[in-house]
Design a binder for these strands. Structure first.
Lengths: 184, 184
DNA sequence: GTTGGATGGAACGATAGCGTTCCATCCATA
DNA sequence: TATGGATGGAACGCTATCGTTCCATCCAAC
């Protein structure tokens, strides 16, 4: 099967997803937007959920990885900046919020999202372990709750309240997150 | 118009919303689930968006209000517990996540949600002002960012990662949030 | 008891996506 | 240059919802 057709379909799928949402996503429109016959789509994927899962799992490979930045503060800053870079894409933001809403209804999507969550979780775990090794955090901190604190406020601001997220904000977030981690 | 019909329609609307999501919500099914003719529904609301906005604005009145608990820590705890009580309802959680995803596509919904956001914002503002008056927080703290920290982690855990939120977790959240606020 | 308005229910034509099938055309490989 | 598989496009029957209309029934207020 021709690769450019597959690519066009993938792009159209995400574009449509962002535009109308998962539930209202019509494969007929996806094919049309890709400039492709419906048959070409159904030859590749049997259903909307299957297509979504497949495409999401492919994208999962693109996750950025940041190494040891030398200190907890620098690690947190790097993580937040990387997260911000991703969440600033309108298309990604739309799809992510939609995905989080749709997961409760389409179990297949949860499976597809799991690699992302696991990658994020692993990355934060490493960050915490490094901080403990450096003596910047107590060994008894609650990993799960720290994970919540490292991701949630920035997500909330970028995807929900749609406020500013300039460097000054990120720096404040770094300070506050560090303080929270030390208390956890 | 008969009140019990209006009530049945309202209940059915939220129930269906939670079940299939806003985009896939069919007013025909809502009427059927309410045991009511479609005409009775369209006599009351002209469209899905209008019905959603109207019903949401009615619900807005039910927002719980907690007074001064005597200290920043007690205030934060009360806020988190109240928030948890709301977010523990499966129906509310589903509708809320769905709403946050749909807002980008249906401006009318943003208008309907605004009173909620404003109420939450006001409440947090009062909490902060009280803390400053008590000398527990510096007058220079960033209100907006604190707002993010007070709401986001708990939302993230309850609505996204679907992890535990027992009292021990809430207490940890109180400690960490307090530390973050002091650093902000 | 009468009356007037709201009701449940059924049907309308229109639109749209579903998943599938068919076919003439295109194009890469051999 | 020949050939076989993928292609775009059109159409299939089916189902569902839309927003509207009609009507016989019901019920509450007078």
């Amino acid at each position: 099967m021709r690769v450019e057709v597959t690519d066009a379909l993938s792009r159209a799928f995400f574009s449509e997803w962002s535009r109308v949402g998962y539930a209202a996503l019509s494969l007929e429109r996806v094919a049309k937007a890709a400039g492709v016959g419906k048959a070409a789509l159904y030859r590749r994927w049997p259903s909307k959920a299957a297509m979504a899962s497949d495409l999401l799992s492919r994208v999962g490979l693109t996750l950025t990885e940041t190494g040891d930045m030398g200190s907890l503060e620098a690690d947190v800053r790097a993580l937040l900046l990387a997260f911000r870079r991703v969440l600033r894409h309108r298309l990604i933001r739309r799809i992510l919020t939609d995905l989080l809403a749709e997961i409760g209804r389409e179990p297949a999507l949860e499976t597809a999202l799991r690699p992302f969550q696991q990658a994020r979780r692993d990355r934060v775990q490493q960050l915490i372990e490094r901080a403990i090794a450096r003596g910047e955090l107590a060994a008894t901190v609650d990993r799960e709750t720290i994970l919540d604190f490292l991701v949630a406020p920035l997500y909330w601001r970028l995807a929900v309240t749609k406020g500013r997220s300039d460097i000054a904000y990120i720096e404040r977030l770094v300070r506050m997150t560090k303080a929270a981690m030390a208390a956890g």
